[in-house]
Design a protein around this nucleic acid. Structure first.
Lengths: 204, 204
DNA sequence: ACCTGAACACCGTTCAAGT
DNA sequence: ACCTGAACACCGTTCAAGT
């Protein structure tokens, strides 16, 4: 939620500058991909994306050799939003339980960017060769931020590892996505996870 | 594990008898599907399956109008194994924690029958129109058996619902599948779930 | 009643030709 | 340096013709 420092939405990516027409095509492809993935999910037709962007299929391949490269591009400002939410969670003046409830809800929401996104992110978590591996790392760092803070506060059980928590919540996000549940239906599952990592003293 | 009462492996399905050649093709298709799904996962080529079975593509469609009908057929004796494991878990003379550890490991193993199976089962859980919905219900009943037993033993926290537990463990199975983790790597996640549903008194 | 295989549609991917 | 679009390969799905 909190409107943290974020570089201005548009361009400014750390890639070498493109020719004007190439940049225009790049942007149109990303916009078209955002549309198609929103409608059809992560397996939406690449042909359709090229068509909507008004370019030939070869142009799509030149800019994005694989489908995941395209997904990665369309998540450019996503990372910042995730990080901002994790910072907001840590800085909030609430109980450990409430902090986890908010953060996990954020995590699930971010991972269900579009249909199939949660599954892709889950699979990429352990695959450094994936184009979206970096995005997963960022997600991991954001989760680390919250979990580490709670460990330092002695709110969590001994032995709780951030990585395991991330996997587990990713599993919840994937289920929410695949079974087309809405956000509220994730809460009971997340509460079990929270009870599973919170120290007994903090229990209801 | 326990070799519970199971009808003899082969035919004897409750469907109307097929003509001899049709039955032979049916069996060859199921066998070929088992192979291909084992190698390529749940999205393996149907063409390839027909080819390996030595039949035309039309024959595959006659017997199995959708991919999920084929998956359902190949899980015919799967249900019994799942049920048997849940009975064995309940009858085992072990602690609640150990019972859950065994049962959840069984559940994950059964759901990762082949690549993509866990995701399919998770999606079908809330979709009565799915050909494999019945399989999910059976899975649910097996899980109910264990969870209900533990509730009656007062081993679980108040408010724990079998359905939520099933979804959560399905999430773990899906992650295990997608990130290609092996069985042992699921244990830390499952332990969190167990801590999340076990009453405090039973904690390590 | 069941099977075959040609035919069609759709999609991903490549690449020669163009600017 | 980048784009186009034809061409190819592969796959799912249908259906007329056969037995």
């Amino acid at each position: 939620m909190a409107p943290v420092t974020s570089t201005t939405e548009a361009d400014a990516a750390p890639v070498k500058p493109l020719r004007a027409d190439a940049q225009r095509n790049y942007d149109k492809l990303v916009a078209a991909a955002r549309e198609v993935f929103a409608e059809r999910g992560a397996e939406g037709s690449l042909d359709e994306i090229a068509k909507r962007a008004g370019v030939g299929p070869g142009t799509l391949y030149r800019h994005f050799p694989t489908r995941d490269d395209l997904i990665d591009a369309l998540m450019r400002d996503w990372t910042e939003r995730v990080a901002a939410d994790s910072v907001a969670a840590v800085e909030a003046d609430v109980s450990a339980r409430e902090m986890l409830q908010r953060w996990f809800a954020d995590l699930v929401r971010h991972m269900t960017l579009h249909r199939g996104a949660a599954a892709k992110l889950s699979a990429a978590m352990d695959d450094p060769s994936s184009p979206i591996y970096r995005k997963c790392q960022m997600l991991g760092e954001a989760n680390d931020r919250v979990i580490t803070h709670l460990i330092e506060t002695h709110a969590l059980r001994d032995g709780v590892e951030s990585r395991q928590v991330q996997r587990l919540v990713s599993g919840v996000a994937t289920i929410v996505d695949q079974a087309e549940l809405d956000a509220e239906q994730a809460q009971p599952m997340l509460n079990i996870v929270i009870d599973g990592i919170l120290r007994d003293s903090a229990t209801s």
